[in-house]
Amino acid sequence: MKLPRARHDDLLIEELPDETLIYDLKRDRAHCLNKTAALIWRRCDGRSTVAQLASRLREELHPDAEEELVSMALAKLQRARLLDDSSSARFFRKSYSRREMARHLGLTGGLALLLPAIVSIVAPTAVAAASCTTAAACNLDPRNVGKCCCDVSPRKACKSGGKCTGVAC
């Protein structure tokens, strides 16, 4: 079995105090990793085993961290396509929900926060719906046809052909 290796190509990484944000430029997806998931992801160098990763987790995050936590994180990272394609083996065969996993590992209260989490970041629906388009975006994306060009004065609608020369809006 190939050891897990973090993918680094075409990713935009932004570190925050409590989480790591990753934007996958290739797939146009964004993810938010909690501390546990981020730490494991950063340590996936293609040479470390699950046991070694768990040991690092115990050193750096919590002395009670177990190998199962690492396996769970790897499975999530794999699903989010944040591991190299060569790390294709399934690291965590048995599927647990976060709640089941917390119960299984006996994690309660604050310790449950130790569970790895990867959340997909999406543009808030309201924000996405709210945006009018711009002359540049009208030119680049045919989905903007019909929207109002907010940076053109007087305001005109984005026309097919990528120009803000439609009727006033």
Partner: peptide, 15 residues
Amino acid sequence: ELHQAFRHHRLQHVL
């Protein structure tokens, strides 16, 4: 949703 918006804006800023 507000937290998600912050994360989204943060990544968009860097991009």
